[in-house]
Design a protein around this nucleic acid. Structure first.
Lengths: 232, 232
DNA sequence: CGACGCGTTGAACGGGATCAACGGGGGTGG
DNA sequence: CCACCCCCGTTGATCCCGTTCAACGCGTCG
């Protein structure tokens, strides 16, 4: 994957029809293409906020509290643009779940580069707002939903997302472990596993091995989930 | 409170030294000053995202899920600028906790008005990022912290915030009920009340009536709280 | 006066965490 | 090649924190 392709994809995300060439010119110097192996942490300077564009693979954004416990804030898939903050009471880290190709950008540099292009800035602002909304929905989820609602909703949403990517009828491959799901949903490994078992026993899902999964009864799963959202 | 004073305050928030006059010119037509009585809902069109500036008083931003349960996303105090989204799985509403003076702005109009001023847009973007970070911290809190950690942290933070406003040594007046605290912290009224009682019994706080509160042992309270953040 | 919401406290319940044990797979080094 | 180990996933037993249900005093408003 070449840098130029990444820049093109980025422009499609944050730009409009009219400013493509100008954007390409200003973005090219601030884009850093990176390849990361599965399980590895994405090396990002902790002294500035960054934007990371996911070209291929899958990642998780985790917040590390002082006590060593990890909380997974969101999972990212190709096409996502995630903001990794340097400030705040937690340290934010990005880990690759699979071998991944990413573009790492210094947020201030991006903003400076786009400062002559109000449309791009507006677009970035809109993305930030959407991320905020998703995060708010996630917070509500964590404070209000039961374990089975969380797992059901998580599966539903993840399966939908993965199906769009692979476009394969039948099933998807979950890129994360039970533990990571738990860390995203505020549950323990054991509880996540038990909920998977229940859903399997009731015939709402089908699993093969640790990663393969197929949603059998989508509507029933949705009914169990209630309202649900987990964010980029 | 006149409109012009509100516009001036807003400019101080989103503008820089250099663009004050220009900003005033573009912001003035999109600012809607509103007075809201305690307990009343702020009337905001649900068809567009809005920004609300809190001039005086206090408000809560609540998300209503389908089932009628309310979740308080954040409390706002004078000087805060809060984004109220129209989209998403939840309906977002703003309620006044006390008689309040607010400025309601259509977000798109603000963005359009600022489109010639990259500094203002960048500033808004920065604010959105900070809100996102605070929201992320809140999500972690809700999934990881125990009841006593949540309440201790909440009190600590709220007292600090209120003390800055009133500048009175000695004590503060909490503008929200136990129920509303519970709805913000993901706890029931009873649990919040019990935690208050415990903290009172242990001498970490002092209360008089339902609203008056004084932090007696700040460090001890902080120790109980662990890392903590709740957002604007 | 009664009605209502708030705050507080007690008693019992229950959902999810915790502790524990076991099978499976994949890597590593003998 | 196999032995070993570590992590993942699963299931069972138990525990505990926060919810739920219930009762009561208080202030406020009709």
């Amino acid at each position: 994957m070449q840098k130029s392709a990444m820049v093109k994809n980025l422009i499609a995300l944050v730009g409009t029809r009219s400013d493509q060439e100008a954007l390409e010119e200003v973005l090219r110097p601030v884009v850093w293409p990176v390849k990361v192996r599965a399980g590895a942490q994405v090396r990002i300077s902790l002294s500035a906020d960054h934007l990371v564009y996911i070209q291929s693979g899958a990642t998780k954004l985790v917040a590390q509290a002082g006590d060593g416990e990890d909380h997974v804030l969101a999972f990212q898939f190709p096409g996502d643009l995630v903001t990794v903050s340097a400030s705040g009471p937690h340290t934010y880290l990005l880990y690759a779940l699979k071998d991944s190709e990413l573009a790492v950008l210094d947020q201030d540099e991006v903003i400076k580069a786009c400062s002559g292009m109000p449309e791009a800035l507006t677009n970035l602002l809109g993305r930030a707002m959407r991320a905020l909304n998703l995060c708010r929905d996630g917070a509500i989820l964590l404070s209000r939903r039961s374990a089975s609602e969380r797992v059901a909703g998580f599966i539903l949403q993840l399966a939908e997302r993965l199906k769009k990517m692979t476009d394969a009828e039948g099933g998807v491959c979950l890129p994360m472990t039970r533990r990571e799901m738990g860390e995203a949903l505020g549950l323990t490994v054991e509880t996540v596993s038990r909920e998977f078992s229940r859903l399997r026993a009731e015939g709402l899902i089908e699993t093969r091995g640790r990663a393969w999964l197929r949603v059998v009864e989508g509507p029933a799963l949705a009914a169990r989930a209630g309202l649900f959202a987990i964010a980029a």
